[in-house]
């Protein structure tokens, strides 16, 4: 049940995509998302789709894994598409009572749907192929210029990496506490809404206590190893761009150019 959440889950494999510098992957994901909003016709989406498929193929992550994260946004997707389908004004194709389906509506609903699916797929591909540690390292490096305007970049990235690191731990903990209470005949599934909400107390109280205990232990461990924030801190594995990363950037530029030319200018 809790295992279905793909967010922040890393799929271990050794592929070109996995080996890329995290900064490249973050930039690429960012560019990909922007490109989805630049596109105005189906040719553009075709290019974006092909690019995404190529990346998935190269990453060797089984597609099943990538689409597992889709379950969570299924309803969002459905609602978006339904709203676009029925509420877009334009040339009516079908109409009954007060509802009418327009040509523009169908087009917009499809585009929105595809856009959302691509968006989620693209970003989960990044989290699946990059370890949380690498991800925050990359982010920290990319956000470095913000330090000039006194944004605490290091602290933010440290908080992020700790938060990401704790997701699986707390999920495991929840699973354990749930089982322990189930062994005492706790019932989480039946009863009225109020009863069900109340039945969460035996899970939430131990979970919060354990989270605080872990936070306390971690703070102590960091303190014991003289952690004093990012000032003058060096990295064991500093991020260095390699040849593959340069090629990846080049591919990205070509992709962006293609999207702009095909998706906006040529067939608009």
């Amino acid at each position: 049940m809790l295992r279905d959440i793909t967010l922040g889950q890393y799929y271990r494999a050794d592929s070109v995509i996995h080996r890329l510098d995290p900064r490249v992957k973050i930039v690429a994901t960012f560019v990909f998302i922007i490109s989805l909003f630049l596109v105005k016709n189906f040719i553009g989406y075709l290019v974006a789709g092909l690019f995404l498929c190529l990346c998935i193929k190269l990453s060797t992550v089984p597609p099943k894994f990538i689409f597992r994260g889709m379950k969570a946004i299924f309803f969002l997707l459905l609602i978006t598409m339904v709203f676009n389908l029925f509420l877009t004004p334009g040339e009516a194709l079908l109409s009954f009572w007060k509802i009418k389906i327009t040509k523009e509506g169908i087009k917009l609903a499809l585009m929105m749907g595809v856009r959302l699916v691509f968006l989620i797929t693209g970003s989960s591909l990044m989290t699946l192929t990059t370890t949380p540690n690498n991800l925050t390292d990359g982010l920290e490096d990319l956000l470095k210029p913000l330090k000039k305007i006194r944004v605490p970049v290091h602290e933010i990235s440290m908080m992020m990496s700790i938060a990401l690191r704790f997701i699986p731990i707390l999920m495991e903990e929840t699973d354990k506490i749930m089982k322990a209470q189930m062994a005492r005949c706790a019932d989480f599934e039946s009863g009225s809404l109020i009863n069900r909400a109340r039945s969460l107390v035996p899970i939430l109280v131990p979970l919060f206590i354990s989270a605080f205990r872990r936070a306390n232990d971690l703070a102590m461990a960091m303190e014991a190893r003289c952690y004093r924030g990012g000032e003058g801190r060096t990295k064991m594995k500093p991020l260095i761009y390699k040849k593959e990363d340069a090629i990846a950037y080049l591919v990205l530029v070509i992709y962006l150019a293609l999207i702009i030319v095909l998706g906006r200018i040529l067939f608009s």
Binding site: K176, K179, A180, A183, R184, P202, P206
Partner: peptide, 12 residues
């Protein structure tokens, strides 16, 4: 009856 490892963590 099943008593889990570190059962004191389930007290609430």
């Amino acid at each position: 009856g099943l008593v889990f490892q570190y059962p004191e963590h389930q007290l609430f």
